[in-house]
Design a binder for these strands. Structure first.
Length: 773
DNA sequence: CAGTGAGCGAGCTTCCGCTTGACTT
């Protein structure tokens, strides 16, 4: 029996708050939303004003039952869900699900988990803001209508089990369009001129690097310029020294944490969130799903003390950052260490590194600016108006740079700006060497998971709690793949003027190398183009921003929620029925040429099982020939030659022992088939060129590997074996798997023991069964 | 887990945002 029951969203938060409130308070968590639209069907009554059918989520039945029991016994129930649209709805759903009395509702909110903030909240309870609840309802209903009407359309027009939605479809669009930009990108080259001037500085000579203020379009112009420099005089014409400042980046939000962890630590978005969750649950950091850069007064104070103690008071600068993100709800603080004097944490390497990143970023955000001095030296060339420019930078006061520097997403190497030796206007310089180097324009960068999140946040699409799941959804649906690409070697020309001689050589550099980048698949491209053609309004980058404005008006009581939904749904539903009736199935078919052997058309398209190539169209009773595309190939870019290669499979490599070895490409990539069994080829093997020797090598190696997994075999029962698997030993019997009871020693199992286990335990679910779930 | 691509039809798939564990062959 408790006097006061406080309900918050997160259990870690509940534990902290319970410590702040006395023994008269019990603090429990509802684990986020407890009610949602019914999973089956639309869950929205379109005929009667779009009334949503909210039901208690199946996985929250127990939570709700437990809370209900506690609420019944409590004198007062305090609803302390987050102060935003979703939080208000959670409070309203709790009233409903727990059968709370309307007059006994105490809704409280706080933005930071500190004792004064909690106590102040308790002093100022309010009722539930029904307008805000209606705004959430509008958001939820709109997303359901869009998702559950568009997805079935895709099942009919493209492929079953696809999905579309306000957020995911726009995320895919970004990736498809970026790929298009890259495909259409015209690489142009120009010649950059760099000069090295030896400058005496006392006894030492420093090489000063200067770049010409002009690039030449052609090789001939660049060489002509070098010729001109051969006898030219170089004079220091101007030296300008300017003080400059650098300021620290604001503390982390979910999105910026994901970006920095990706750049600095190489973490995937999901990995960052998993590790951050661990840090949060063990009380090391504040909540990790936030869009706010705000720090509590308590945090500011702790940071100030910490910086003063560690670096001195001249390094302190207390700053309040303002969130600029579109549609930010600011229900939480920024992500920060709970205690600023904890410089590191226990745990595995990734936990340590992520914590350290958060600590440095937070501390740096409260430190003084770095003070720099930038020097620009302009060097004139006799006989031409072009100038060389040398730049140098000196740090006068390091400030926050002592702790942390934000990384950038550009793949251009940082211009190394070093200290320049003293020089004077009028100095005559000698050119040590002058180099003309061919440089190429850079294609737009493909998205990483983290830069996609950044872009989505800019567009106001998705929320901190959904960035990671959305990225996993678009990959799971097969719209997008995260992949590496081998670069190609590109030759470039370099001409050097040294000691009056111009020498030229061709060198090579690697270009187009990609690591963990997002590429659209053919399905992604076809679905995107289809949606763009018929639902341009939903796919508009500003669609979310516009509906968010209307949700805000609903929250302010200036707009009626179901009127807003009605105005959207009428035209939208007409688009759906119009497209349903007015279009044929889309396949993205593209004729890429003619088969020289048969003279028939060769085309590529999306088939029932994915991207495929096809020879002939099945006219005059001829059956077309089919082949799936290989991994990495796309119907957008495949050439006729590559497509024709596909039809050279399967290949018979010849006999090994008594059986033939046949290679081909299947659903899971290239494989060799031998004596009725399948063996996957390695990534580096090409089924078109692999030799019998290499295939046999793979086959024998895999056979040996399979042999080593066997712990026991019993001649009396050939289908029963004890095997070593990923999760330890298990029994395989008649293609079903059985777990071993705890404490079993697999080495000592007799056939009798195994038979007993098989008859007494349930087989584990097969991989197929789980995937379907 | 593996080579498919005729056609029919039943029954299934799906959204976005809040939260954590359960469980893995």
């Amino acid at each position: 029996m408790t006097k006061n029951l406080v309900i918050v969203e997160s259990p870690a938060k509940a534990k902290t708050i319970e410590g702040f409130l006395g023994k008269d308070f019990t603090v429990k968590s509802c684990f986020g939303h407890v009610m949602d639209l019914a999973k089956k069907g639309l869950g929205v009554d379109i005929e009667n004003g779009f009334i949503p059918q909210f039901v208690i989520s199946p996985d929250k039945k127990k939570v709700v039952a437990d809370l209900k029991k506690l609420a019944k016994d409590a004198q007062k129930v305090w609803l302390a869900s987050d102060e935003d649209r979703e939080g208000e709805a959670i409070a309203a759903h709790l009233v409903d699900a727990l059968d709370l009395r309307e007059d006994g509702i105490h809704r409280i909110v706080f933005h930071e988990i500190t004792k004064p903030a909690i106590l102040q909240a308790i002093e100022n309870p309010r009722s539930i803001d029904q307008y805000l609840v209606m705004a959430q309802q509008a958001r939820r209903v709109l997303d359901r209508l869009v998702g559950f009407e568009l997805s079935p359309l895709l099942w009919k027009k493209v492929k079953p089990a696809l999905s579309a939605g306000r957020v995911q479809s726009v995320a895919v669009r970004l990736i498809v369009e970026r790929e298009e930009e890259i495909r259409n990108f015209q690489v142009v080259s120009s010649f950059r001129i760099i000069a090295l001037f030896p400058v005496k500085n006392g006894k030492k000579t420093t090489m000063v690097q200067a770049e010409l203020n002009k690039r030449f379009d052609t090789h001939d112009e660049a060489i002509a310029f070098l010729e001109q420099c051969r006898d030219a005089k170089f004079t220091v014409e101007d030296i300008e020294t300017k003080p400059s400042k650098k300021s620290p980046a604001p503390p982390f939000t979910t999105s910026t944490l994901q970006q920095e962890a990706s750049r600095k630590l190489g973490f995937s978005v999901a990995n960052t969130m998993r590790v951050a969750q661990e840090l949060y649950e063990s009380g090391k950091i504040t909540y990790m799903r936030t869009d706010s850069v705000n720090l509590s007064g308590l945090a500011l104070g702790m940071a100030k003390t910490e910086i003063t103690d560690s670096f001195g008071k001249e390094y302190v600068k207390t700053r309040n950052y303002v969130t600029k993100t579109k549609g930010a709800q600011e229900a939480h603080e920024a992500i920060r260490p709970t205690y600023m004097d904890r410089h590191s944490v226990e745990g595995d390497r990734s936990r340590k590194r992520l914590y350290e990143l958060i600590w440095k970023r937070t501390i740096a955000s409260q430190m003084a600016d770095a003070e720099l001095e930038k020097t620009t030296v302009t060097i004139g060339i006799s006989g031409t108006s072009e100038k060389f420019t040398a730049r140098g930078e000196v740090i006068r006061f390091d400030g926050f740079l002592k702790v942390y520097m934000e990384s950038s997403d550009d793949n251009s190497p940082e211009e190394s700006e070093k200290m320049l030796p003293p020089m004077n206007t009028g100095d005559i310089l000698e050119a040590g060497e002058i180099t003309a180097e061919q440089r190429f324009s850079q294609q737009p960068a493909r998205y990483t998971e983290a830069t996609l999140v950044k872009k989505m946040e800019e567009l106001g699409i998705g929320r901190p709690s959904t960035y990671a799941p959305t990225i996993s959804t678009i990959q799971k649906r097969g719209y997008v793949v995260k992949e590496d690409r081998e670069g190609i070697l590109r030759p470039y020309v370099m001409a050097t003027l040294k000691d009056g001689e111009i020498t030229e050589k061709t060198q090579t550099e690697k270009t187009g190398f990609e690591k963990n980048k997002l590429f659209p698949t053919d399905i992604g491209t076809v679905v995107n183009n289809f949606l763009l053609q018929y639902f341009e309004n939903i796919m508009d980058y500003n669609f979310t921003a516009r509906v968010e404005e209307e949700f805000d008006e609903i929250a302010q009581g200036k707009m009626v929620w179901n009127k807003m939904i009605g105005e959207f749904y009428g035209p939208f539903h007409e688009q759906i029925t119009g497209t349903l009736e007015g279009t044929k199935k889309v396949s993205g078919a593209r004729v890429i040429g003619t088969d020289p052997k048969s003279g028939e058309k060769v085309l590529v398209k999306i088939g029932r099982y994915g991207p495929m190539a096809q020879i002939g169209e099945g006219e005059e009773g001829q059956k077309p020939r089919f082949s799936s595309l290989k991994k990495g190939q796309s119907i957008e870019t495949i050439t006729l030659e590559e497509a024709l290669d596909l039809f050279k499979l399967p290949r018979n490599l010849g006999l090994y022992g008594d059986s033939e070895v046949i290679v081909s490409t299947g659903r899971f990539g290239p494989y060799a088939k031998y004596a009725g069994a399948y063996y996957s080829l390695a990534k580096t093997d090409d089924p078109l060129s692999i030799t019998l020797e290499r295939a046999v090598e793979i086959i024998t190696e895999k056979q040996k590997e399979a042999q080593s997994r066997i712990i026991h075999e019993y001649p009396e029962e050939p289908t029963l074996r004890v095997l070593n698997g990923r999760y330890g030993a298990y029994i395989s019997y008649n293609k079903q798997n059985f777990k071993l009871p705890k404490g079993t020693k697999p080495e000592e199992l007799t056939l009798e023991d195994c038979r007993k286990i098989v008859s007494e335990t349930q087989p584990t679910k097969s991989a197929k069964g789980r995937k379907k779930k």
